[in-house]
Nucleic acid binder design. Structure first.
Length: 496
RNA sequence: GGCGGCGUAGCCAAGUGGCUAAGGCGGGGGACUGCAAAUCCCUUAUUCCCCGGUUCGAAUCCGGGCGCCGCCUCCA
């Protein structure tokens, strides 16, 4: 099955052919570590994590690099505000980033470079750009890329230099020759982080780091470069300008951009203040619910975030989760040998679901359509489950078919979509999740709940339903939901 | 203003030239239950922002409107 991807560079859906199969080199822009990540960052991380898992599933040998920007104005500002060293701020938010992303099932990249570990590489690139005549140093100690020297400037964002000039602003005190020129190296002000360079003490501009990371860890020409839509201009345009000015080769052959997270019609961002951090999500919902929400929307479409939508997605998630967990209950039923021969009809649904699932992903990574296919399998599983529960026994043939369905979901939703890792057998519960899911009070006694359920059961047997209902209602107020099944009462904590 | 994208049921969201317009949430009806919950079944768009055009045939292609969003400044 050929994979088709929308390439921002050409504006077209294209067949994905790696430069050097089975190897795929992919780079995405990570976060600037000056604060906790929000849902907008989460979306980008989830999309590319899932995409990487999918490529691996297809048999590609993927080398995935995602950076941390650990020196920039915002980090310095924060450090000044807290009277801390900027590295302390960066380290703190990198540590928190790992907690946040682990919870949500985002695997670490193969290489996760930091700017502060690549200063010599960055200086080398800047020097080469000067040597080749694409960049110039100013007497003030800044170095700029001369945009007009690079003839393809604007090819990614589909802009011409003339158009850009019309809207360009010149900040007072800037020493650029052309307002469109961007900084490769900035002279440090007193007290700011500074590194020795041929142009005096300074620090790198934002756009060079990604080029340095790619060159060092992946090479001069990579297969896929990803990031949020908002990075197309100027960041990615500037990356292309620097890299291709140096090598003359295509920097990245496919450019993938995820759509932005929207809140009430506006982009979620720090500056607008309409953001929700990942940690805030985790205090209210299982992280998988957010992951599922992200994958319920095509990666290039805007994603309207709302708590109503989280609630909606939670129901979908619970439905999937329940179908998977019920395998354990089914196994506990009386198992009998079936006189009926032949393949169980569920196998057919599994086959169709997987076909639809992988077809959808192969067409510009349509996770939302792939998910719809799995929902149909869930419905079929529930039918089978209902029948067995009604009879209070299950045939060996049915049980095996159900297990195959669970395995299919492991293959699709767990291995590729990165969901359900703490539900399916032999997967350790993620510590962060466990911590966040505990009720704030921390008072929770399983034994006590079991006792109440037992008392209620007795009341039901004696048909004292007002007592039984009182127990059920009061437990619900405490966030514990009771379900009466043909073989006893099950209870679970609500995740919000 | 320029560039890019979008407009499908109460809501989210597939479908991009031709079978009965996926899937989910919500709503209505039913089965199950002591009552619930969960689950299952049925139902919920004669129609795809509007107006023209191409075609035997369009939500899908073309032209023109209208509306929304993003980028053009740091931003996943």
């Amino acid at each position: 099955m050929t994979l088709k991807l929308f390439n921002t560079l050409t504006g077209k859906l294209e067949e994905f052919v790696p430069q050097n199969p089975p190897y795929v080199k992919i780079y995405t822009c990570g976060v600037t570590v000056y604060d906790d990540s929000h849902v907008g960052h989460g979306r980008s991380l989830i999309v590319f994590d899932t995409f990487r898992r999918y490529l691996e599933h297809l048999g590609y040998k993927v080398k995935f690099v995602r950076n941390f920007t650990d020196v920039d104005d915002k980090i310095i500002n924060r450090a000044n505000k807290e009277c801390k060293h900027f590295m302390e701020i960066a380290d703190r938010y990198i540590a928190r980033y790992y907690e946040d992303t682990e919870a949500i099932g985002v695997k670490p990249a193969d290489v996760e470079p930091r700017v502060t570990d690549h200063i010599p590489e960055i200086i080398e690139i800047v020097q080469k750009l000067i040597d080749k005549g694409y960049a110039y140093a100013t007497p003030e100690g800044n170095v700029y890329f001369s945009v007009e020297r690079f003839k393809d400037y604007g090819k990614l964002s589909k802009r011409s230099i003339d158009e850009l000039k019309a809207g360009a602003r010149v900040e007072p005190g800037e020493d650029k020759k052309n307002p469109l020129d961007f900084a490769l190296w900035k002279r440090s002000k007193a007290g700011e982080p500074a590194w020795e360079s041929p142009w005096g003490e300074g620090r790198p501009g934002w756009h060079t780091e990604c080029v340095a990371f790619v060159f060092k860890h992946l090479g001069e020409s990579i297969d896929i470069h990803g990031g949020g839509l908002d990075l197309i201009f100027p960041h990615h345009e500037n990356e292309i300008a620097q890299a291709e000015a140096l090598t003359g080769k295509p920097f990245a052959r496919y450019w993938m951009h995820n759509g932005l997270v929207i809140v009430n019609g506006q982009k979620m961002s720090k500056s607008l203040g309409n953001f929700v951090t990942l940690r805030e999500i985790y205090t209210k919902y299982h992280p998988d619910v957010l992951r599922l929400l992200v994958l319920s929307v095509h990666y290039r479409s805007p994603l309207d975030f709302s708590w109503e939508k989280m609630e909606n997605t939670k129901k979908v998630y619970e439905r999937i989760r329940q179908a998977v967990e019920d395998f354990e209950t089914l196994k506990g039923l009386q198992i009998y040998e079936d006189t009926e021969g032949g393949l169980h009809p569920l196998y057919n649904t599994i086959k169709e679901t997987e076909e639809k699932f992988f077809k959808a992903l192969s067409e510009d990574f349509k996770t939302q359509e792939a998910l719809a296919a799995v929902m149909e399998l869930v419905t079929e599983m529930n039918k089978v489950r209902n029948e067995a529960f009604k009879q209070k026994k299950v045939s060996k043939r049915t049980l095996e078919a159900y297990e195959s369905a669970v395995n299919s979901i492991k293959n699709t939703l767990r291995n590729i979509f990165g969901l359900l890792e703490d539900v399916l057998p032999r997967c350790p519960v993620k510590e962060v999740v466990k911590k966040e899911l505990e009720p704030a009070s921390g008072v929770f006694d399983e034994e006590l709940v079991n006792l109440l359920v037992e008392v209620r059961q007795l009341a039901r047997q004696k048909k004292v339903f007002d007592i039984a209902d009182l127990i059920r209602d009061r437990l619900k107020e405490k966030g514990i939901v009771l379900e009466d099944t043909p073989f006893g009462t099950k209870w679970k904590k609500m995740s919000s």
